[in-house]
Design a binder for these strands. Structure first.
Length: 488
RNA sequence: GGUCGGGUGGCCGAGUGGUUAGGCUCAGCUCUGCAAAAGCUGCUACAGCGGUUCAAGUCCGCUCCCGACCUCCA
């Protein structure tokens, strides 16, 4: 518990003690979704990982401003001039206004994240709402001599930039090798000076729907400039944490850093955090591979890869049982294991309030607490923290069985610890059908009736009640201290 | 082809030099009218080969296998 929070920094390739630039304030930026289709489960993993980061930082007492953008102007399909805006393409296919598409998927996106119990970010800015900022930043980069215009399109001059600044710092690649990769890069890119140059502003073709006026004519912003513009607007030229999926490192984040440095001479984030991919049978989940599924399909089980449906909290728990920086392989058996584990943990929490207290505790509360906090402080090691929670669950169950003891003070502390870690930090929540007065009342009645028939040794009737309840997802347990039930 | 990351027991998945990860599964026991739950016990590990070390899953080298990125991608 005396340990300090350490975070693995992609920039330095080391775990570093976290020291905010302006404690107690923390600025965090995470690259959000491009709203051209539904977010799949792999996308959700990243946002879930940063939700825990957000929650834990807040739990530690920091005042966190968490900015997660929404990309609603569309990225190009290719690096060349041929690319069609993803959102515009979708709009054409669905015969809708581009902003209708964005709205449709924005609503869906927020619903999904809400299902997974993600806290909303402090600010969720859209690219289309910050065209002016992006134009201004582009102008500055041109003024600084690191971008050039060719026929209404502004290109970032990577090689010139790289002469003075470490362009490949994040990716760890070698510039020469990147330049050497001379393949299929001619089409539509004749106007670029360098192979690695990327667009800050694109000239809009006549048929392009989403367009804005700029000093260079009608067009739209490039892929990377929005994050630079919005992060510096809301978090300043330098802030604490920048996050995203690790597949963004070599291109998007590398270029983002370059833009900020080219504009303001400052690298935007002190710490870069990257989450790893969700895999299916060892392969990255992605739309193009056809192995992705949507949260909705996961909940209902309506996908060939799924044996049945799983609840959002089970999926959340499943994801938290792996470290964010590791690949996590999806499978039905793994999800089923998480489901049972999650239930075990939740059941232990329910037992806690009713535990009998003693003069002595047969376990060391401070050690348990330290284990959990040390785990979280070690680069948000949620699987290890969960292992600590299970240790606590074992204690709770043992006390409940009369095989261990707990003092009133420890019980109170344990309840507080579990509540804070499980609910506040890990973001899990109860999702049983129970809780309503009506359901509780009905269950009490049923259990009373069952008690009566059991007293008469009418076990056939007793078992029938139990079996029928199980069919609707309610499990009855005949314990020593009476009958309890759980719902899933 | 280049760059980077990884290969842990039946499954998922922590762990970077010496100490039980944890969850799930399976078997046995306790409890139970029977179950379930819970508790206890047991089972199968560190891809391979070599090296460093008193000591290696953990460090070094090589081999094999896998993945990610290099093109939009969380």
């Amino acid at each position: 518990m005396n340990s300090e929070l350490k975070i693995y920094n992609t920039l330095t390739r080391e775990k570093e003690i976290f020291k905010p630039l302006n404690a107690p304030h923390v600025g965090m930026y995470v690259c959000g979704p491009t709203l051209y289709s539904h977010a799949h489960l792999g996308n959700c993993r990243t946002f879930l990982s940063f939700d825990v980061v957000f929650r834990y930082l807040k739990h530690l007492g920091y005042k966190v401003r968490y900015v997660r953008n929404i990309t609603d102007v569309g990225h190009l399909e290719s690096d060349g001039d041929e690319g069609e805006d993803k959102i515009a393409k979708r709009a054409r296919l669905e015969k809708l206004e581009p902003m209708e598409i964005v709205q449709l998927y924005a609503v869906d996106f927020h619903k999904v994240l809400d299902d997974f119990n993600l806290l909303p970010p402090s600010i969720e800015p859209t690219a289309s709402g910050h065209i002016i900022e992006q134009i201004e930043m582009t102008k500055k980069i041109i003024e600084n001599g690191l971008a050039y215009e060719v026929d209404g399109t502004i290109w970032f001059d990577v090689e010139k930039f790289a002469m003075d600044y470490p362009y490949t710092e994040l990716s760890g690649r070698k510039l020469d090798e990147m330049l050497d990769g001379t393949r299929d890069n001619l089409e539509g890119q004749e106007e670029k000076r360098g192979r690695l140059d990327f667009a800050l502003w694109k000239k809009a073709k006549p048929e392009h729907i989403m367009r804005w006026t700029s000093p260079w004519g009608e067009g739209f912003p490039g892929w990377h400039i929005e994050c630079s513009a919005m992060s510096s607007k809301y978090l300043g030229e330098q802030f604490d944490i920048h996050g995203g999926g690790m597949d963004l490192i070599p291109t998007h984040h590398t270029n983002e850093v370059a833009q900020n440095v080219a504009c303001c001479k400052k690298s935007p984030a002190k710490v870069w955090m990257h989450t790893n991919m969700l895999t299916v049978n060892g392969q990255k989940m992605s739309k193009s591979l056809g192995n992705s599924f949507l949260p909705e399909q996961l909940f209902t089980g309506s996908h060939p890869l799924l044996e049945r449906g799983y609840s959002a909290m089970v999926v959340r728990f499943f994801m938290l049982q792996a470290h964010y920086s590791s690949t996590l392989d999806f499978s039905n058996t793994a999800l089923q294991a998480s489901e049972k584990g999650c239930q075990r943990l939740m059941n232990a929490m329910k037992l806690m309030a009713g535990l009998k207290t003693s003069d002595k505790s047969s376990f060391n509360f401070e050690n348990l607490k330290a284990d959990i906090y040390n785990a979280l402080n070690d680069d948000f090691n949620t699987p290890l923290a969960i292992a600590g929670l299970f240790e606590g669950a074992g204690v709770i169950n043992s006390v409940n069985d009369g095989k261990a003891t707990i003092t009133a003070a420890d019980k109170e502390q344990l309840q507080k610890l579990f509540s804070e870690i499980v609910f506040d930090v890990l973001g899990l929540k109860e999702e049983t059908g129970a809780g309503s007065d009506k359901v509780d009342g009905l269950m009490n009645l049923i259990i009373e009736l069952r008690k009566d028939v059991r007293a008469k040794k009418d076990f056939a009737a007793s078992d029938k009640i139990r079996d029928e309840l199980l069919k609707v997802g309610i499990q009855v347990k005949d314990g020593k201290e009476g009958v309890t039930w759980t719902s899933n």
